[in-house]
Nucleic acid binder design. Structure first.
Length: 459
DNA sequence: TGAAATGTTGGGGCG
DNA sequence: ACGCCCCAACATTTC
C-alpha cells in the first residue's frame, strides 16, 4: 500500500490541484498537511486578516477531508510527519519566491521521495523566454510570447482531477484554539476564505467580465473581480480563472486575461531576478535620496494627507485589506513621487495590509510605480492625484464612501477641498484642518522636486 | 496603464 | 471681403 502526503501551501482547495491529483492517482491513501510557518507568523500583527482567511479555507477543506494543521517550522515538521505517518512519497506544488524555494529545497533534500508540480501559474518563470533563451524584462513582448505559447498548445487547459475518496478523513480538529496557540485573533473579513466563496465570486464576476475593460478603473463601479485573494491562496485555480477568460469573446475578457499574464510576468521576474526583493530592478536607481519624512509617511498610511482620493483609498485598504488596482497605482505614485518616500516602505506597508499580498505582484507593482522596475515607466511619468480623481471618481462616490466628512462637497471641489471657499466649506459642514486635513504638501512643488531628485540621482 | 508645456490649426468676432 | 486677434481644440514635445 502506497501512502502519500500532500503539503498544501498557497493552494487551499480540493479541486483542479496538480499535486493532489497526482497523489490520489499514484497512492492508495493520501494525507494532507498545512503548516502555519512560525517564521512568517512572527512578522505579522496578531490580528492579521490573512491568518483568518487561511483558517476559513482550511475549515472548508476539513468539511470534506482531514488536514493536519501544524504550527512551527515546516523544515522540521514536514519530515517529522512524513516519518510519523509512515509516508512513502511527498507531493506539493511549486512556489517561486526565494524564501519558499530555499525552504522547499531543504525539505526535498531531507526527505528524498518528493514530487513537485506546476500549479499556481500557467507558465513557469523558465517557460516563456526570448528567442536566445534569456528572460523578458518588458511586459508587452512577454505577453505576446505567452499568448503565442498558449495558443500553440491549443488553448488546452488541463483540469487536475482529484479523487477525494483516496484522501484520509479527519475528525474536524480545527478549532479556534488554533488562534490562541499561534497568538493570533480571529478577524471578520469582508472577503471570507474558501473555495465556495471564491467560486461564487468567480461566477458573479462572469456576469460582468465583458465590461471589465470599461469599468475596472472606476472604483465606484466595482468592475474588478475581487478574486485576487482567492487566487493568492489558491482557493480557486489559475486554470479556473483562465477558463473564465476564454468562455466568451470580448475586450473585457481579453483585458482580464492580460491581467492574469501580468501576474505571471511578475512571477517570472521574481523567479529570474530575485534581487528585486531587496533592491531596485535597475541598479542605477539604487541611490535615490528619498526626502519624505516619517510624518508624511504616517499620514499616507493613515489616510490623512489632505488628498481625498489618496486618503479614501488608504482608508479602504486599512479597513478591508483590499484596494482597486487603479488606486494602488495612484497611492503608490503619490508616495514615491509626491511625498518622495522610498517605495520600499510603501511596498512593506502594502505587504502588511493587503489580503491578497503576493510578493511578486506587489514588488513588481511598486517597482513600476517608482520607475525603478523592469518595463519601467520613465521617472517623469507622475500621476496627478487630482486629475486621476476627476478621471476615475468624477462624482466622488468612492471618496464619499471613505471620507464621509467630505460628502457634502460638490463634485468639483471634492477632489481638492482646499479650493473650496469658506462659504462652500461651511455649507458642507467641513472645516479644513479640523474635519479634514489641509494637503500636507503642494502637488505642483512636489512634482518639481521629484523631477529634480530623479534627474540628479540618475546623472 | 501621465501630465505639463509648447506648438499648430482653424473658426468666429471684429474693425 | 479681408486681415488680425483670440482662444479652444487638438497635436507634439518635453519632463
Amino acid at each position: 500500500m502506497k501512502k502519500g502526503l500532500v503539503w498544501i501551501r498557497r493552494d487551499l482547495r480540493l479541486h483542479d490541484h496538480a499535486a493532489l491529483s497526482a497523489a490520489t492517482k499514484e497512492c492508495d491513501e493520501v494525507s494532507l498537511v498545512f503548516v502555519f510557518d512560525k517564521k512568517i507568523l512572527e512578522k505579522l500583527e496578531p490580528e492579521d486578516r490573512r491568518v483568518s482567511f487561511i483558517y476559513e479555507a482550511l475549515l472548508e477543506i476539513e468539511e470534506k477531508v482531514g488536514v493536519h494543521t501544524l504550527v512551527g517550522d515546516p523544515i522540521k515538521l514536514i519530515p517529522e510527519l512524513f516519518k510519523k505517518l509512515k509516508i512513502d512519497h511527498l507531493y506539493f506544488n511549486r512556489d517561486y519566491e526565494p524564501y519558499a524555494l530555499k525552504r522547499d529545497n531543504k525539505v526535498i533534500r531531507e526527505i528524498g521521495n518528493v514530487s513537485t508540480y506546476k500549479d499556481s501559474v500557467f507558465f513557469e518563470p523558465h517557460e516563456v523566454l526570448k528567442g536566445d533563451g534569456s528572460p523578458y524584462t518588458v511586459f508587452t513582448p512577454y505577453k505576446r510570447r505567452w499568448l503565442e505559447a498558449f495558443l500553440n498548445q491549443g488553448k488546452n487547459i488541463s483540469d487536475y482531477k482529484v479523487n477525494l475518496n483516496k484522501i484520509k478523513k479527519g475528525n474536524s480538529k480545527l478549532k479556534l484554539e488554533l488562534f490562541k496557540k499561534m497568538g493570533f485573533q480571529k478577524t471578520q473579513n469582508t472577503l471570507v476564505g474558501g473555495t465556495s466563496k471564491g467560486k461564487k465570486l468567480l461566477s458573479s464576476f462572469g456576469k460582468k467580465i465583458a465590461n471589465y475593460d470599461k469599468t475596472r478603473d472606476f472604483p465606484a463601479m466595482e468592475g474588478t473581480s475581487n478574486l485576487s485573494v482567492y487566487i493568492r491562496f489558491g482557493c480557486i485555480s489559475i486554470r479556473d480563472m483562465i477558463r473564465l477568460s476564454l468562455k466568451n469573446k470580448s475586450s473585457g475578457h481579453d483585458i482580464w486575461l492580460s491581467e492574469l499574464i501580468w501576474r505571471e510576468f511578475y512571477q517570472m521576474i521574481l523567479g529570474q531576478f530575485p534581487h528585486v526583493v531587496k533592491k531596485e530592478f535597475k541598479p542605477k536607481y539604487e541611490g535615490i535620496p528619498w526626502s519624505g519624512t516619517t510624518k508624511e509617511f504616517n499620514a499616507w498610511k493613515e489616510g490623512r494627507t489632505g488628498f481625498p482620493i489618496v486618503d479614501a483609498a488608504m482608508r479602504c485598504l486599512n479597513e478591508t485589506g483590499m484596494m482597486p488596482n487603479r488606486l494602488r497605482m495612484v497611492v503608490a505614485s503619490f508616495l514615491c513621487k509626491t511625498l518622495l518616500v522610498d517605495w520600499k516602505k510603501g511596498e512593506k506597508y502594502f505587504a502588511s495590509k493587503l489580503l491578497d499580498f503576493d510578493l511578486a505582484a506587489n514588488n513588481g507593482g511598486w517597482q513600476w510605480s517608482s520607475s525603478t522596475g523592469c518595463d519601467a515607466q520613465p521617472y517623469f511619468r507622475i500621476f496627478n492625484p487630482y486629475s486621476q480623481s476627476q478621471k476615475f471618481d468624477g462624482e466622488g462616490e468612492f471618496i464619499k464612501k471613505w471620507c464621509p466628512e467630505l460628502s457634502s462637497l460638490n463634485s468639483k471641489k471634492i477632489h481638492q477641498p482646499d479650493l473650496a471657499d469658506m462659504i462652500e466649506l461651511a455649507e458642507a459642514g467641513c472645516t479644513l484642518g479640523k474635519d479634514y486635513p489641509f494637503p500636507i504638501v503642494s502637488y505642483t512643488k512636489s512634482r518639481q522636486k521629484a523631477l529634480k531628485m530623479y534627474k540628479k540621482a540618475l546623472s
